[in-house]
Each structure stands twice: as structure tokens, then as C-alpha cells.
Design a protein around this nucleic acid. Structure first.
Length: 581
RNA sequence: GCCGUUGUAGCUUAGUGGUAAAGCACCAUAUUGGUAAUAUGGAGAGCGUGAGUCCGAUCCUCACCAACGGCUCCA
């Protein structure tokens, strides 16, 4: 039986094989580091002249050729001097050797066939026997900083895919192809959900009418889940004076990610967070303990000047709309409030069909308590409250030490989409810092000022990113309640158009979104177009339907046959109301 | 930001140192069709932007912008 360990060794072995092939074809290249990763392996090189994608084929061919000679690995321990002599001229390896020496570890060299590398081991003993040439392939070329530090030189990284068998490799590639088909950037364009404009700029996607329908439905649903839980809607402007962020600490924390706006007299900042604004709304009131908790909700767009190279689609943008909310409460109220938020999150993600395989990180303090703000007592209460809320709500949570923010412990929710990819979406964070910085207080039973705790919470995370995730999760086949066009009415001939419009009127009265095809095309063409647009229901109206005052409904699973128009509307309304997937 | 690749009609793509081709979509006409493409015709880009080389550039050079794959970052 082959173990995971075996596969990791195989990938590691292939990294060596890759380095050997590269050095054979490009003798003046310098090999650096090459580990196994979770779908294969990579190796970083410094090339004297840049190589291109086409070189990958040659390298791959060379790897497969050499594989037959890679019969057995051997290794030996060497002295620092020997190792440095062997790798002279390769400053990267020399740096690694110095590091090994300074840690007091042994230096080992691993050799297979005519290739030797500095390595601590973990290979297949007999590569020729244990690796088939069709179970791996080189996949792509990328840049990577030496040791992952952007101050260092950029090296060339060659990635390879490797699995136990050819079949597993093919299954992986098939999964990737499926992911590509679902890519929200591709579907967003095809289904006219959103667009980007070079004139407007990178990371600033625009919602098309159809995309906006989805976004609005999600936003409305989120508010629906909050409005009877004591939340109030607030609104805050998109810019604020720099002083606000100096007080909040965001100016120092965000640094060059802030967009700055020069006014006639004052310097402004495009808000990177909503928290400080909400703090000011709270501070405008003289609250009593009887008013606690105070809960604000605002789907609000914030602006961050992300580095250009990391922008993409809807998942990494410069204008981010958070479904943001802040609660101000007493420390002993944290548990109850978190519990309510957790129930909202559970409801929301159950509706989206993402509660399978989720997990929650309960991020608590690490050992070095000095890094965190707030008293020991407060931290203990907050951590225990979060954990209790997680328990009461039967969350699948893991306590992760040292993952808390400096200002308080948090719950981060990870959900899996339809093809098993994990997304960090919802978050609940307690905060001892901002109330302190803004000197917030309410009056307690003893007529004294008491400092509230702030809870930051986001259910979807960001509407843009969440929409991207939803497009990929549903592969564009949105549930009825989210579909931009819920019903497409297909009159069979021009004679039925008037009648189709009458049916449209009925749909409109029931708040069902529809379109009528008026083009003089064949029924086959009309159906094809509607299916390509991934519209959930087709309503066919021909002579027969007009005569009998019926409509023939066809869902994604197949036809539902002819039915009265009221029945059709009932059926659709019920499916919309239930937010069925 | 950095490394690499890319940028031709709304979309998907072809092509060339002598001012660009196709399919889908769009428009028109005919067809009035019962479950995944009816036919014919038409209009539409000057080849991401700017500069340079050249008698002449969409094609070569440089800069910039943008997208993609990574690195890094991610309250």
C-alpha cells in the first residue's frame, strides 16, 4: 500500500530529477531549493538567460530520459569544507550550508545517478522502479523570490505535477479543468454579470444589471437575517480625515495601502475599514448599560490600494464591500451576541449549500502574552465566551493558539464550495483595542463609565468576493431566488407573443423576474439560447397553451409539462420563497 | 511591486513589414417553427495606449496600461 509519505518522497525525488535535468540542459544555471508541494513539486533556479514555457518540454523530456538511470539513491555526511567545495560558485547553496552549520545540524549530500544535491533526505530508494514517466509532468514557470523575501533576487521556479499513478494525475487535471470552467471571471463575462474597464482601472469591477440582481438578493437576504436580531442600519461616508485613522491606528497599520485624497484644506483618506466610523456613531450617544448591546450593520465599500500584481477578478479588488457590522457590548454579553451571529452564519451558509465540510478556527492568544492588548482577565473571558458560543451552537471548531489578532480572539469560518475548495469567509472578532483608542464608554449600574467591548462581524466577508465564490460554487446555475432571470417565456410563434406578455404581467405581479423572447427564431434556437444563459425555468407558450390558458414549464432537470398559469406561479413563488438550491 | 506570458470587432479566435479574416452575437428580409443553432444579406475593428525605426508597422524597438500564472501580502 502506498502512503502519503510515499507520494511526498516521490515528489521530492522528482524535484531532484528536475534539477538534474535543468543542470544538464543549462549548465550555468544555479539550483537552489526544491520541495514537494501538495500537487507535485517545484524547484527554484537562477538562469543566466531567461527560459520560456517551450523549454519546459525539453526539460521534461530530459527528466523522463534520465529517470531510467536513477536506480538507487545514496547519501553521505560531509564536512562544511567539503560541502562548500562541492557547491562553490553557487551562493544559494553556500548560504544554506552556513545556515545548517549555524544550527549545528549535519550536512548530508544525496546522490542519484550523476546528480548530487544538498538535502536532508526523504526520497524514494529506487526511482527507476517506483516512478512511472506518465505520473508526472512539468506544469508551469513562475517567478519566486529567493527564500520568499521580496527584497531578495527573483528566481525562476519550475512547477511540476506528480501523483501516484497516471490515473490520479489525470483526475487532478480534470478537476482543474472543471474549476476553470467555473471560473467566475469567465462566467461573469459570459453571463454578463460584471465587467472590468481599463479606463476605470485594475481591481475596480463594475456590476452589470444581472450581476447586480444577484448582489442585491444576497445583500437583502443578509439584512433580512439581521433586522429582527436588534441590528440597526447605519451609513458612513467613503472618506474621512486622516486624523480618524491616526486615532484608530489604521494609518500606521495600513500604511501605503491607503488611498489619499487631497482636499482644498484637509487631507482625506478613502476608508479602508468601517470600524472607526461606527465608533464615532456610537460615541455620539450617551448610552446606558440598559442600551447594551448596540448593534450597527452596514454593507459598506472600503478602499485599499492593493499591489497591482495581486488583483484579480472579484476575489482581490481595490473597492471591497464588506457586509460589515459592529456590536458594542459588555464583556459578559459576548457569548450571547456571538451565539446569535453564529446562528445567522449557519442559516446563511445552509441556504447557500456550503455547510458540508466547514470548519471554524477559534483563534486565541499564543504563549507570548505581551504581544496582545487587554488584560488577562478580559482575554480569558472573551476566549471562553467564543468557545462557549461555538460549543452551544455545535460548531466544528479547532482551537488555534497564536492566531488571534493583537486586539482580541476571533472565530474564522472556512467553508467548502461545490468542488471542495476551501474559502475563509465569515468572521467574528472581539476587540479590546478600538474602544480604548476612541475612549468609548457607557454608564453602568453604579453610574460609572464602563468601557464596552467591540465585536466585528462579517457574514459573507465581502460582497464582491462572495459573489465570485458563489458563481464558482454554483457554476453559474444559481438557485431560483438568486437567478437574474428566473423565467424565460418562449412563444412558439409570433401569434403567441401577446399572450406571452399577458403571462409576463402575471409574473411581474408576483415579483418573478422574466424575459420574453420576441425574435423570430426556431423553438430549438430559443431553447438553446436560454439554456446557455443558464436560466432556471423556461415557459413555453404555443397554440395549445393559448387555447387552454396553460403554460409548459421546463426546469433544469427536465420538463414539468403543461399546467395552469396560477399553478406555475405558485410553484415558482414557493421555490423562490424557500430559497431552495 | 517583482518574475513570466498575453493584449486583433460585444465575445471566441485566424493572420501579415505594404493599411485585416472568420464563427457567435447584432441589424434587415423571408420563414411561423413544439424542446439545444431556419435561410439569405448587411453593418461592425485599423489590430491595448504613446513614442521610435522604416518609403511604409497591427506585425520590429522602447515606455506605459491591462489581463493571466506565480512570488509576496491579506484586520
Amino acid at each position: 500500500m502506498q502512503t502519503n509519505n510515499h507520494l511526498e518522497h516521490k515528489r521530492h525525488t522528482l524535484a531532484h530529477l528536475l534539477a538534474s535535468a535543468v543542470l544538464k540542459l543549462y549548465p550555468d544555471a544555479k539550483n537552489t531549493i526544491g520541495p514537494a508541494i501538495d500537487n507535485g513539486f517545484y524547484y527554484d533556479f537562477e538562469f543566466s538567460t531567461p527560459i520560456t514555457e517551450t523549454s519546459l518540454k525539453d526539460i521534461q523530456r530530459e527528466m523522463r530520459k534520465s529517470l531510467s538511470k536513477w536506480e538507487k539513491f545514496s547519501h553521505k555526511e560531509v564536512s562544511e569544507k567539503e560541502a562548500k567545495e562541492y557547491f562553490k560558485g553557487n551562493q544559494y547553496k553556500l548560504e544554506l550550508i552556513d545556515e545548517i552549520v549555524s544550527k549545528g545540524e549535519k550536512i548530508t549530500l544525496y546522490t542519484c545517478a550523476d546528480f548530487t544535491d544538498l538535502c536532508r533526505g526523504g526520497h524514494l530508494e529506487e526511482p527507476t522502479k517506483e516512478i512511472t514517466a506518465d505520473s508526472f509532468k512539468l506544469s508551469r514557470l513562475a517567478g519566486a523570490y529567493w527564500r520568499g523575501d521580496e527584497k531578495n533576487k527573483m528566481l525562476t521556479r519550475i512547477y511540476g505535477l506528480a501523483f501516484n499513478t497516471k490515473e490520479e494525475l489525470e483526475a487532478y487535471e480534470k478537476m482543474m479543468a472543471e474549476a476553470e470552467k467555473r471560473d467566475h471571471r469567465k462566467l461573469g463575462k459570459e453571463l454578463k454579470l460584471f465587467t472590468v474597464s481599463e479606463l476605470i482601472g485594475a481591481g475596480l469591477p463594475l456590476m452589470q444589471p444581472k450581476g447586480m440582481v444577484i448582489r442585491k438578493e444576497i445583500e437583502d437576504y443578509l439584512w433580512e437575517l439581521h433586522k429582527n436580531k436588534g441590528y440597526s442600519r447605519v451609513w458612513t461616508p467613503h472618506i474621512a480625515k486622516e486624523a480618524l485613522y491616526v486615532t484608530s491606528g489604521h494609518a500606521a497599520k495600513f500604511g501605503d495601502e491607503l488611498f489619499r485624497v487631497q482636499g482644498k484644506e484637509d487631507k482625506f483618506i478613502m476608508k479602508p475599514m468601517n470600524c472607526p466610523h461606527h465608533m464615532q456613531i456610537f460615541a455620539d450617544n450617551q448610552f446606558s448599560y440598559r442600551d447594551m448591546p448596540v448593534r450597527y450593520f452596514e454593507p459598506a465599500t472600503v478602499y485599499r490600494d492593493e499591489k497591482s500584481g495581486q488583483l484579480g477578478g472579484l476575489t482581490r479588488v481595490r473597492a471591497i464591500t464588506q457586509d460589515d457590522g459592529h456590536l458594542f457590548c459588555r464583556i459578559e454579553q459576548i457569548e450571547q451576541e456571538v451565539s446569535t451571529i453564529v446562528s445567522i452564519i449557519k442559516k446563511f451558509y445552509t441556504t447557500m449549500g456550503m455547510m458540508e465540510g466547514y470548519w471554524v478556527s477559534l483563534s486565541v492568544r499564543g504563549d507570548d502574552k505581551s504581544k496582545y492588548l487587554g488584560t488577562d482577565e478580559a482575554w480569558n473571558i472573551a476566549e471562553n465566551s467564543l468557545e462557549k458560543a461555538a460549543k452551544v451552537n455545535e460548531l466544528n471548531y479547532k482551537r488555534v493558539e497564536g492566531e488571534a489578532a493583537f486586539y482580541g480572539p476571533k472565530l474564522d469560518f472556512m467553508f467548502k464550495d461545490a468542488i471542495g475548495r476551501q474559502w475563509q469567509l465569515a468572521t467574528i472578532q472581539s476587540d479590546f483595542n478600538l474602544p480604548e483608542r476612541f475612549d468609548l464608554s457607557f454608564i453602568n449600574e453604579k453610574s460609572e463609565k464602563e468601557r464596552p467591548v467591540v465585536i466585528h462581524r462579517a457574514i459573507s466577508g465581502s460582497l464582491e468576493r462572495f459573489m465570485g465564490v458563489m458563481i464558482e460554487h454554483f457554476a453559474g446555475h444559481f438557485p431560483l431566488w438568486l437567478s437574474p432571470v428566473q423565467v424565460k417565456i418562449l412563444p412558439i410563434s409570433d401569434d403567441e407573443i401577446e399572450n406571452a406578455k399577458e403571462f409576463g404581467k402575471l409574473l411581474e405581479e408576483s415579483n418573478i423576474r422574466f424575459e420574453i423572447v420576441e425574435e423570430a427564431e426556431s423553438l430549438g434556437k430559443k431553447i438553446k439560447d436560454a439554456k446557455i444563459a443558464k436560466i432556471p425555468y423556461l415557459a413555453v407558450i404555443g397554440k395549445k397553451e393559448v387555447e387552454e390558458n396553460t403554460v409548459t414549464l421546463e426546469g433544469r432537470a427536465g420538463t414539468l409539462g403543461a399546467m395552469t398559469r396560477n399553478r406555475a406561479i405558485e410553484l415558482l413563488s414557493e421555490e423562490i420563497r424557500s430559497r431552495k438550491i
